[in-house]
Nucleic acid binder design. Structure first.
Lengths: 354, 354
DNA sequence: CTGAAAGCGCTTACAG
DNA sequence: CTGAAAGCGCTTACAG
């Protein structure tokens, strides 16, 4: 539409393209790859023909001949996790700025080996894992990658023992939350959905534990979890169910920490439906600081993951690993979280504040 | 961990692999590709060695030699649109079941040509567009694809004139919504965020128009839009701003139709903050039927896109187009929406119901 | 039923 | 500064 096409014929190989321009294949290849020592006139001629014909060198041939593919495979647990999606999104953007292509795959529980095999067959430069995976399965995947001399990186889950990772410091996150709430006079804490075998969960429990002890409180008394009473199908619904169970208790915690924002919102609505005022009667913290936090009344206080930092460090790590020799030497990086205080947190009931 | 590795050495080519098994490269290739006429014993031997060594034939060499790549490129506008993400997610799953790999890329406004070029250089079998794109830019992309004999499909946007598409019937969607509300006694309708040059918007306006006329109402009077009063940065915030403007009007519509769920939630909270009761004082419809609809009080009525249907049809269309000759003949398919009635819709004020 | 040979579309020494 | 030739790792006629 913009300009009339001068050469509508389709060119399928450098051979055809070279003939069309009137140069040898090698010269064209050199021009295409920006090698030094070509006449400017030659370069211009190739560039013009490139624009006119829309010719694209076959990436498979390029990859076959030369270096490793400038591709990074990304394995996701699920597309339904908004935080994970935000991470891939930013990762792909940053990697593209570095000239790297991202190959995004959902690692379905049954076909994970097949998916990894596909990435390996494409000879990707590295494989990134984003989300929560079964630790032993993940360990097996990483082992296979290492055997194939392909570097890996686990984002936001410290993963099994021998994995390179960049992850949010969830121990610190929970310390920050508890410290803040203790300063507001809270002494008893309800845990919403913070249970399970994942490291991302056990780290949080460690953080809660440490902060409580540091405040002179006994974790066995001050932290209450009713997770075992319900089955988690949907985070939001699980939050509702847990809140209902807490409502049925004689003595209730004054502050609640949810595993994520959806769970927190489920609990918030349930508490409010029971006539409790937030934050006057109780305080509530989400996790992830999604947009959803702005859609409740009052707005939800939450923990921000600092995704930008996570991805920046991840990209640096990947670039260092791609092309260098794969060793068994492990790289670990922790990203600092920060609290976002909104309307669901305040002084403990009957307490004027710190 | 599961079994001790019998052959920890890494094999990088069929040549090495064939030598390892003690067969010729051709035989190995045939076994790998399931060609008929091999001894079962040979097949088993190859399979066993495959498992033991973890060898993966180089996909680039395979693609270079043989047929078109069994890959489908997917261009997304953004990863922040949950409905679009749900579509890719399901699409990737379904295509994988057909043995096709999905290559997901975000089509950044500036670098869209480069991204498309990358997909073309990988010789993908087809390119799918999901989301909202600038019509003229999209037309240019599709034109380039056609020049390269690569089939395309636009999902959920009828797209520019000459595009293959599978999209929600938004005309029908709005007809259903208006018909339902008219039956409930509503005669005046506020439009929230339904404006702009995209076909997905103009289709909705067509539907509103038709349904109002069919009900004997004058669209110029019965449908009110205040979109022009504000700038849309964030859907949720835009919903709040629009609601505030409607609140400032002397005579207000009794029913509101939002462009999506986020916008609806923004408006809902604003209306409620002003002391209006939903659905007693006004009715409100979202669009997309996201999980978010369950997180408001009352729960949000919305229009469901029938994503499963959309993707099923899309996959069928793609399979038909991949491998067959690319023509200028256009395929169009519309998917029927359905209403999900929840708590935000009811009889018009002062009206006992239908 | 299996092997030797050509060729897919590139890049990169190696000559000129 | 540019061209002829080898080779990346596969598959597929073509012989045996």
């Amino acid at each position: 539409m913009a300009k009339p096409r001068t050469t509508p014929q389709v060119i399928r190989s450098t051979a055809e393209f070279a003939a069309h321009v009137g140069l040898s294949r090698s010269t064209v290849s050199r021009a295409l790859n920006g090698h030094p020592g070509l006449k400017q006139k030659t370069i211009d001629r190739v560039q013009a023909a490139l624009d006119a014909t829309g010719f694209r060198p076959n990436a498979h041939a390029v990859n076959l001949r030369g270096r490793r593919a400038a591709m990074v495979g990304v394995c996701m647990e699920d597309f339904r996790n908004p935080t994970a999606v935000a991470k891939v999104s930013l990762l792909q953007q940053r990697l593209r700025e570095q000239g790297l292509t991202t190959l995004i795959e959902v690692l379905a529980p049954g076909s994970s080996r097949q998916t990894l095999g596909h990435l390996l067959s494409l000879r990707v430069g590295a494989v990134v894992f984003i989300g929560h995976f079964d630790p032993s399965e993940l360990a097996a995947q990483i082992d296979e990658l290492t055997r194939h001399s392909t570097p890996h990186l686990v984002i936001d889950d410290p993963g099994p023992g021998g994995a390179n990772s960049v992850s949010l410091d969830r121990v610190r996150a929970m310390e920050l939350v508890i410290e803040h709430l203790v300063a507001q006079g809270h002494r008893s804490f309800g845990l919403l959905g913070i249970s399970g075998a994942f490291q991302t969960v056990t780290d949080r429990l460690t953080g809660v534990d440490r902060a409580l002890r540091a405040a002179g409180l006994d974790p066995a008394v001050a932290a209450v979890s009713l997770d075992s009473l319900h089955v988690r199908r949907d985070h939001f619904e699980y939050g509702s169910l847990l809140a209902r169970s807490f409502l049925a208790q004689r003595r209730r915690p004054t502050a609640y920490l949810a595993v994520n924002d959806d769970t927190a919102v489920g609990a918030l609505l349930e508490f409010q439906a029971a006539g409790l005022r937030v934050p006057e009667d109780l305080s509530l913290f989400g996790f992830n600081n999604q947009n959803l936090c702005l859609m409740t009344r009052p707005k939800l206080s939450s923990v921000d993951q600092n995704i930008e930092d996570t991805i920046d460090v991840s990209v640096k790590t990947l670039l260092a690993k791609i092309g260098s020799v794969v060793t068994r030497r492990i790289t670990t990086h922790r990203v600092a979280p920060h609290l976002v205080l909104r309307g669901t947190t305040g002084p403990a009931p009957g307490n004027a504040g710190r």
